[in-house]
Amino acid sequence: MIAVEGVSKTFGTQHVLRNVSTVFETGKVNFIIGRSGSGKSVLTKCIVGLLEVDEGRIMFNDRNFTAMNEQERKAVRQEIGMLFQGSALFDSLTVEENVMFPLTMFSNMSKAEMLDRVNWCLKRVQLDNANKKFPAEISGGMQKRVGIARAIAMNPKYLFCDEPNSGLDPQTAIVIDNLIKEITYEFNMTTVVVSHDMNSVIEIGDRINFVFEGEIWWSGDKVDILKTTNDELNNFVYASDFMRIVREKLQ
């Protein structure tokens, strides 16, 4: 479980996060949704410590991450896996080397053990026969899979995904979404997905946090979200004609 308690973040005079509090539950896919520029990525980066918070604290299973020094944070970081928006694979390394990277840096496994683990991870994301390819030689959907494989290589307790299906076609997007859901349940991870895609929310969302102008405007599950009476959330959820048709059908 990750608890965000009263977090604020300012860039110069711009208040990006104001007193944000929420909880991400273990074994569930927790969403952070909101419009572009609402502060979703900044919130995520504050949680994992890529940005320092101005106020408030972040708790990883009752461990106060905000108060830790670099050395203590490093221990927590090794329990975190992250899938980046653009996959962020190391482009000088092959697929296999990318997934092996955290293992070579932090584990004491032998080469053969590492290779076993890598192959297991790649198989888990249904990516065989791409071991020796470079990131530039595979498709966006395959890059995301490698990103997931790298993120789970160290058996993380916490998984963060920043816009996991941006830039993917709808079918591939759903495959990636479901992969995230399956892995979350299989390993009982605390998963946080940042997205603005209502499709994903409906497909795999367990708990949803709606960020509006740097505040958590609404939290709930996906049944609640479709019948929300919150104006800003309504505008967000029913922004497309498609969703408006869904609303009519629901009523």
């Binding site: 090794q78 990277f101 840096m105």
Partner: peptide, 17 residues
Amino acid sequence: GTMRISEQIDALDIMGI
């Protein structure tokens, strides 16, 4: 610079490197 803008540096930092 390319590693920075494609978040590869963030990926390293996240791993605790």
